[in-house]
């Protein structure tokens, strides 16, 4: 049996907290994960999710992405390595490089 020994712990929020969204379209259905919305609070997340799913859903669950522990088998992970700050310029380097092209 595969073990869920790989934890996906990278953050998912861009500009505000991220909320995982689950819906059920009929009371007989399983609850289904349908993605996530960005919102600063649960109330606003509910509004955002409702604007996308209220047409068909009878149940809506929200869970803060940063409170969701995601485990999976190693074979479905996206490659190796840590998150990529080392691939990105420092702020100082970025500022010194900006507009440098015009000084040739």
């Amino acid at each position: 049996m595969e073990e869920f020994d790989h934890e996906v712990d990278a953050p998912r929020g861009a500009t505000s907290r991220e909320w995982e969204v689950f819906v059920r379209e009929d009371t007989a259905d399983s609850l289904t994960h349908v993605g996530s919305v960005s919102a600063p609070s649960a109330d606003i997340a509910r509004e955002q999710a409702a604007s996308l799913f209220a047409r068909t859903a009878v149940t809506l669950w929200l869970c803060p992405a940063d409170e969701t522990h995601r485990y999976q088998t190693a074979d479905v992970t996206l490659g190796a390595g840590q998150t990529g700050e080392d691939a990105t310029m420092s702020v100082d380097e970025m500022e010194s490089e900006t507009l440098r092209g015009e000084n040739r």
């Binding site: 861009a14 996206l78 490659g79 998150t83 990529g84 700050e85 080392d86 691939a87 702020v91």
Partner: peptide
Amino acid sequence: YAAADTEIADGELSTAEGKALLDD
């Protein structure tokens, strides 16, 4: 549209993850 700013944000895909995404 990306609300970008000067600071490095947490969680960027690494070079290795980026290549795996391109494979995908």
